[in-house]
């Protein structure tokens, strides 16, 4: 309850801050719209040159892409701003003030800033996702749809965990960006169906750095047929990644020297 109350305060502050910088607010909405447009156009052009992609038809790929856009919008709304600042806090020694507060530091630095402008984009992403579902030729039940939404939320949390794993090394490297650029490049792996990957790359993207589990696995489960192995894989890897992230976070805090560099 205490954490929920705290989060509601974060929301209030974030919305009032967003309203102060209105031009910035508008720019961010337009930027995300460009991002959606580029992603959708990318697949549109691909399907002008091939009838299927990794066994998916265009309408299935459209659901897959719109699911990714939905996860991205959720991430941008809830976590992205906070994660952007974390390397700077470590680099400049600003993390001190968060360490001394009587709440979980990870909770505070992960959820402190709610991106109100991205919330508008989240609504747009939901619109695209709903439109993609109405065009889907594959039959599905309401139960399957809700299960898919649950898996997407799992993918969203996994996305957060993976980005944290790329940022936490900043405790040792002291740089102001961490491996954020590398993470964003890896982000391309989320945007592609996992069945295109083979050999060591497949192993890497489904086991070691499981970017393919964020949207592609849920989409495969949704499009069927039933795949219990896929679900087991998804949940086991998600839990392991959470454990690794928490372990790294604790070690990182131990290595934190507070001095600005």
């Amino acid at each position: 309850m205490r954490y929920l109350r705290l989060y509601l305060h974060f929301l209030r502050f974030s919305f009032s801050r967003a309203m102060e910088f209105r031009l910035d607010f508008t720019f961010k909405i337009i930027m995300d719209c460009f991002f959606y447009l580029v992603n959708l156009s990318f697949y549109k052009i691909l399907f002008m040159n091939t009838p299927t992609l990794a066994g998916w038809s265009e309408d299935q790929a459209f659901v897959f892409v719109s699911s990714y856009l939905f996860i991205d919008a959720l991430h941008m709304t809830v976590f992205a701003s906070n994660m952007w600042w974390l390397p700077f806090f470590v680099n400049r020694g600003d993390l001190d003030s968060y360490l001394t507060r009587p709440v979980s530091t990870l909770f505070f630095i992960s959820l402190r800033d709610f991106a109100a402008n991205s919330f508008v984009n989240l609504l747009i992403a939901i619109g695209i996702f709903s439109y993609a579902l109405t065009n889907l030729q594959t039959p599905y039940t309401l139960g399957q749809l809700f299960f898919y939404l649950g898996l997407i939320l799992n993918g969203w949390l996994l996305h957060y965990v993976l980005q944290m794993i790329f940022i936490i090394p900043v405790f040792w490297t002291q740089s102001s960006r961490g491996f954020n650029d590398f993470f964003f490049s890896m982000g391309m792996a989320i945007e592609r169906p996992d069945l295109i990957y083979r050999g060591w790359l497949r192993y890497l993207l489904t086991m070691i750095l499981p970017f393919s589990l964020i949207v592609s696995f849920p989409a495969r489960v949704f499009f069927g047929p039933e795949t219990p192995n896929l679900l087991t894989h998804l949940f086991v890897v998600t839990i392991v990644m959470w454990a690794i992230m928490l372990l790294l976070w604790k070690r990182g805090l131990r290595a934190y020297s507070s001095a600005s560099s």
Binding site: L53, M188, L195
Partner: peptide, 14 residues
Amino acid sequence: LIQLFIARALWQSI
């Protein structure tokens, strides 16, 4: 490297 491998995997599949 990762951008290269992902792009190659995509086109190889196509």
